[in-house]
Design a protein around this nucleic acid. Structure first.
Lengths: 264, 264
DNA sequence: CAACTTTGTCCCGCTATTCGCAACGGGGAG
DNA sequence: CTCCCCGTTGCGAATAGCGGGACAAAGTTG
C-alpha cells in the first residue's frame, strides 16, 4: 500500500533531483513503515548508502525526521505536525475540491458539499450551490453540524470504528431538530449499520425540514476521512439512487486528490 | 512569528543544499503566509527566480504544494495531510517527550504525563512513572480521559476558544466519578476561568479518588495543543505550587520541541 | 486598445554540488 | 573476543543545479 504521491521514482527534467529524492523519502513514511534506516532507504530506492544518509540527515536537520539515537533509525518529526496544521487551516482542500463539487452540482442540479469531522460534529469545508430556484439548499461553509442528524454526518460516522463511535455517542443526549430527527441511540446505531451495508446514507428533513440529503463516505488510506453529499428540496429526490453513481465517482476523485494521484 | 524550524538559512556542510532549500520553502507556509509566488520566494530567501521556480515546481510535483492556476501562486498540498496523519499515528511524539517527562518525574518523584485532546476527551500520549511506592499513580498511555474531570483535561480545555468550548460542553451531561467531580457546567466554567488566570490547574480526586494532579497547558504557535501534568497520591501534594517552575520549564521544552528549536 | 509592467517559464554554458567509491569506526550478536 | 552489519566521513570525478537572459503570458495603465 503506497501513498499515491510517489508514483514515479524518476524526476522529470526541469525539476530538482536532490529535492525530489528528499520528498520521495518523506512520503515513504506512513503508519505501516514508521521508521527507516540508512541502508534500508538506499536499497528501497536503489541509491548509494551515502546518498541515503545525506538525504535523511538533511530531512532531520529541518525537523521533518528525527533520528532515534539508540536504534539509529529515523522517524517522522515535528515539522510534519506543523505541515498538517497548516494544511488544515489553509483552505487548500476547499480550493482543490471545489471543481469536483461544481461538476457534481452541474450534473445533478443539487447542492454538493464536502464535510470532515471535528470532534463530535461534522464541518462543511466546501460547497457549491445547486441550480437556481426558490428552494435552493444553502449549507454554510465552515459551519459545524451535529453528528447524529442527516445523511452527511451519518455517512461519515457510520464508518468510524465501533469502540470510538460508542465513546463519542455515549451519554450524549441527541438534540431533536425536526420530527424526523433520530434521538434514540439504538435507532441511530441501526441506521449506521444500514449505511455501512448500503454504502451510502439518504435522509429527509432530519436536520433542516424538507431538505433531502444523499451522502457517501470519503476514505483516506482505508480510514474514514469525511463525507461527500448532495442536498436539496425533498421533492427533487424522488429517486435518490439515480444520483449514486455520480456521487461515488466524485468521492473517488476526492480520494485520489487526497492521496496525490495525478489526473488522467 | 516563525515556525522555529527555519532558524538558519544556510545548509551545514555534509548536507544537501538543494533538498534543504526545498524544506526551507515548505516551512515558509503557515496560517499567516498561506500562499507564495515564485518572485516572492526568490526575494525572501535571496535566490534567483529560476531557483525559486524549480524548488516550487518540485514541491508541487510530489503534492507538497499545489499551484493555483489562476493566481499563479502556490499553497500547501495534500501531502501535508499525509504527513500530519503519519505524525499522529507514528508515536514520534511519545519518543521525543519521554526524556523530558523522565527528567520531570526524576526531579519531582511524581508521575509525569503529556496529553492531547481527542474530540471531547483528552488522550494521554506519554507518561513516566514516579518514584517507587505503594501508591504510585499509573495513567494509561493511549487512553482517553474525560474533558471535565481533573487538572490534566482542565489545563487544556480552559484555553480553547470560548465559542468552541461552549459547543463542546453544551448539552453534555458530565459524568460523576468521585464526590469531587465537577458536574455543574457553570462551576466548570468558573474553574476554567480560574485556570486561565492562574496559568495552571490543580485538582484532587476529581477522576481517580485520592489522586492529585497539577497541570499546565502546552501551546503551539499561540494555540492550545495539549497539557503537561504531574500526578500522584494527594499526600504528596501539600504544596503543589512548589512544582510549578519545573513543570513550566518542562512545558516550554515540549513547546520548543514541537516548533523545532534546537536543544538548549 | 496598445504600450508597459510584472510574473512565471525555459534554455544553455559554467561551476559548484552532489555522487559513488572506499575506508573507518562503533555497537550488537554469537 | 571476533565478526558482521550499519552508519559516517573524505575525496576525486562528473553531473546536476545555478544564474543570467530571452521569451511568454497575464494584468495594469494611459
Amino acid at each position: 500500500m503506497g501513498t499515491g504521491f510517489a508514483a514515479d521514482r524518476d524526476t522529470p527534467r526541469g525539476l530538482l533531483q536532490t529535492a525530489d529524492r528528499a520528498l520521495l523519502v518523506l512520503l515513504g513514511f506512513d503508519r505501516h513503515r514508521t521508521d527507516w534506516g540508512v541502508t534500508e532507504v538506499a536499497e528501497e530506492f536503489g541509491w548509494d548508502k551515502s546518498v541515503a544518509q545525506r538525504v535523511l540527515a538533511t530531512l532531520a536537520h529541518r525537523g521533518f525526521l528525527v533520528a532515534d539515537p539508540d536504534t539509529r533509525r529515523y522517524r517522522i518529526g515535528p515539522a510534519a505536525l506543523h505541515l498538517g496544521r497548516t494544511w488544515e487551516r489553509s483552505g487548500s482542500l476547499r480550493m482543490l475540491v471545489t471543481p469536483i463539487l461544481a461538476d457534481l452540482a452541474a450534473l445533478t442540479g443539487d447542492t454538493a458539499l464536502l464535510s470532515v469531522p471535528d470532534g463530535f460534529h461534522i464541518r462543511c469545508v466546501a460547497a457549491v450551490d445547486g441550480e437556481e430556484g426558490p428552494l435552493r439548499y444553502y449549507p454554510l461553509v465552515g459551519e459545524l453540524y451535529p453528528a447524529h442528524a442527516g445523511a452527511t454526518a451519518q455517512a461519515y460516522f457510520a464508518f468510524v470504528p465501533e469502540d470510538r463511535r460508542r465513546r463519542l455517542f455515549r451519554d450524549r443526549p441527541m438534540a431533536r431538530f425536526t420530527d424526523r430527527t433520530l434521538t434514540d441511540p439504538d435507532a441511530l446505531e441501526r441506521r449506521f449499520h444500514r449505511v455501512r451495508e448500503l454504502g451510502y446514507a439518504f435522509t429527509i428533513g432530519e436536520y433542516d425540514a424538507h431538505v433531502a440529503t444523499l451522502a457517501v463516505p470519503v476514505h483516506l488510506h482505508g480510514e474514514p476521512y469525511g463525507s461527500l453529499s448532495l442536498g436539496g428540496h425533498e421533492d427533487r429526490f424522488e429517486a435518490p439512487v439515480d444520483r449514486l453513481p455520480r456521487l461515488r465517482r466524485a468521492a473517488e476523485q476526492v480520494e485520489r486528490l487526497l492521496t496525490g494521484a495525478r489526473r488522467h
